[in-house]
Design a protein around this nucleic acid. Structure first.
Length: 589
RNA sequence: GGGCGUGUAGCAUAGCCUGGAUAAUGCACCGGCCUCCUAAGCCGGGGACCGCGGGUUCGAAUCCUGCCGCGCCCGCCA
């Protein structure tokens, strides 16, 4: 991973020249050249231990020699030293200063645009007439952040909400709807009481034979396109979606009705999947079902594990629908990549689907199919998060609690905030805290849901970052000058007649300069947590800077402007960084 | 049984793909700091045989291998 990309770009020609002189091939030293692992030693380092064999000298001597040889050419922008076989390079304040002035003038804060690709991002995917749970929260929040990052990088991200709106359970759900009466059922679903609706239907299905048989016939009607049945089905879908949309709106994610690509939408494509698989010669019959053997997997008995494309009863499967999706995304949407923001337990499923899709020629090696997997949400006791009654926790309730807790803290810390502003800030803080807690850990691992921690306003949390941003806004309100003017006329950090930058200013500046490469890395690996960590390090070095360097109270106007400029970039990077994670940075809190 | 993943201070995490220096960060803990731009903060400190054992390497948290704990997956659910 290359950090401070621009510094390395500037250093490479100099090192290349020297290494040529020493007859060390580029392929040997370039991979060694990278960010220093110990910050105190410098920004960039070259460990020379492995060169000892080639140059037939101890690493210490080699490092000394290289340091001496590059010294002159680096003098204008970096310092170099050597210790225990490492060549260490630090950017001089002049170099950092140049980068800062570039960032100040750039509305994109140094983040470049990629060659635009088309990505389908499959995320959220709740099930009709079923409660959304924390798993959906993860998918929704992570997916939303990935969409925002990709779009900021210049890609087209097609949001696809693969809603579970089809399948055998709909027979019993529709029958239950009829039993309740449409109006009452609609009300029940509309207020978000999805689970009890589903459970009532389910319990009747297992205990009442007559109901069960009605349900089965209803499925047949549904799949046959029976008009009245479809109308009833639509009620279930619409009412559920109304509830989902309420959750999306609370969360502040980009998903809208336009993005719904429910399973029902792929139904007509399913027979074609069968045809194409048959044409490609990989479809086989096994125990009455039509299957494909991807190879490489075995079941409990050591026999090859098939992927079932069509069940023995003629019904289709999740896998079939996923294959149909791939065809649709490749041929209709012309996607270059498809991202599936789905939990880790489905890893094998996606590996099989991708493998079959390639084998059947639905996609090529040029397509980037990625299962953007994530771990489970655990309670503080290490078990999968459930409510006290052992049921799934309703997302709606969870988000309300987040806002309520944030309001309590606001009342305690800043009672001046009232009315709409108080409410808006509580939302930004509460929802931001929930999202950030989810995004800030490596997504493939399980994560522990802890109210205290995420809303503690200390540590690597959204409120801490939001607070840093709000403090800067407060400085600018007090200052009252024209923020734009700071950007166009940024004097160097080191200027004749003014005191040189403090270590806090330089630490902050370094981290600000690193921002673009971190954002790139975060976007290209679909890993928001990398950005989170960096934002926290920015906020933390800002807090230190703020505490130790006076800004508005400083007498030297050159220093005032220099420090305000650092504040300006800090605030903008925090806002942009939080922004691509779907988190609002309020101006006061 | 097979497969996948995971194990890093009291707790929660980063680093692992692509091996480098004293293992990083936050909470908690201990000690300081508000007549001054938001103390929701800052400064300083203690705390880790990186699950255990082998191997590769000049060098291993990182790569390979064996074991142990935990989690998930293993054909007509999604």
């Amino acid at each position: 991973m290359i950090i401070i990309r621009e510094l390395i770009d500037d250093l490479k020609p100099v090192f290349s020249k020297v290494m040529k002189k020493l007859e060390v091939p580029d392929t040997t030293w370039e991979p060694l050249f990278g960010k220093s692992t110990v910050e105190d030693h410098g920004d960039v380092a070259l460990p020379c231990h492995s060169l000892a064999g080639i140059l037939r000298k101890p690493p210490g001597e080699i490092a000394n020699q290289i340091a001496e040889l590059v010294f002159q050419d680096l003098e204008s922008f970096a310092t170099v030293s050597s210790i225990s076989g490492f060549v260490n390079i630090s950017a001089k304040p002049e170099w950092i200063s140049r980068r800062i002035s570039q960032l100040l003038l750039d509305t994109r804060l140094g983040v470049g645009l990629d060659e635009g690709k088309i990505f389908a991002v499959d995320y959220s995917a709740p099930n009709v007439a079923k409660e959304m749970h924390v798993g959906h929260l993860r998918s929704t929040v992570i997916g939303d952040s990935i969409v925002r990052m990709l779009e900021f990088k210049g890609h087209r991200a097609i949001r696809e909400n693969h809603v579970g709106d089809w399948g055998t359970p709909f027979g019993m759900l529709i029958e239950h709807l009829l039993d309740l009466g449409e109006d009452r059922a609609a009300t029940e679903l509309g207020v978000g009481d999805l689970d009890s609706f589903y459970k009532q239907a389910r319990s009747k299905f297992v205990s009442d034979d007559e109901f069960a048989s009605r349900s089965r016939s209803r499925v047949v009607l549904l799949q046959g396109g029976h008009e009245e049945t479809l109308r009833l089905w639509r009620i279930l879908v619409d009412e559920s979606m109304r509830y989902f949309n309420e959750v999306y709106s609370m969360l502040g994610v980009l998903l809208t009705d336009e993005d719904i690509m429910g399973e029902s939408r792929y139904q007509e494509l399913l027979p074609e999947v069968i045809e194409r698989l048959r044409d490609s010669g990989i479809l086989e019959e096994s125990e009455g079902a039509e299957v494909v053997f991807p190879g490489g997997w075995v079941n409990r008995d050591g026999e090859p594990l098939p992927m079932i494309i069509r069940k023995a009863d003629g019904g289709y499967n999740y896998s079939t629908s996923d294959l149909a999706c791939i065809i649709d995304r490749v041929e209709r949407l012309r996607c270059d990549g498809f991202l599936y923001v789905v939990g880790t337990p489905q890893k094998q499923h996606f590996e099989m689907v991708f493998q079959v899709a390639k084998k059947a020629g639905f996609m090529s090696d040029d397509h980037q199919a990625v299962h953007v997997n994530f771990g489970s949400v655990l309670d503080t006791d290490g078990k999968v998060l459930k409510s006290r009654e052992g049921e799934v926790i309703k997302l709606h309730d969870l988000l309300e609690e987040a806002i309520r807790r944030a309001e309590e803290t606001i009342d305690e810390k800043n009672p001046n905030l009232q009315g709409k502003e108080r409410h808006d800030i509580a939302r930004a803080v509460g929802i931001g805290a929930v999202k950030y807690a989810d995004l800030s850990t490596e997504r493939t691992k399980d994560y522990v849901f802890d109210w205290e921690r995420m809303l503690s306003f200390e540590g690597n949390t959204a409120p801490y970052l939001q607070y840093a941003h709000a403090r800067i806004c407060s400085i600018f309100r007090k200052w009252g000058g024209d923020r734009e003017s700071l950007r166009e006329n940024f004097g160097p950090l080191v200027e004749e007649g003014s005191s040189p930058p403090t270590k806090e200013e330089l630490t902050l500046a370094r981290r600000l300069v690193e921002f673009p490469s971190i954002l790139d890395d975060s976007a290209s690996t679909f890993s928001p947590h990398k950005l989170c960590r960096h934002l926290h390090s920015i906020a933390s070095s800002f807090a230190s800077f703020y505490e130790n360097c006076s800004i508005l109270n400083e007498e030297d106007v050159v220093i005032v402007r220099r420090r305000l400029a650092l504040c300006d970039i800090t605030a903008r990077e925090l806002q942009l960084g939080l922004g691509v994670m779907g988190i609002i940075a309020p101006e006061r809190m």
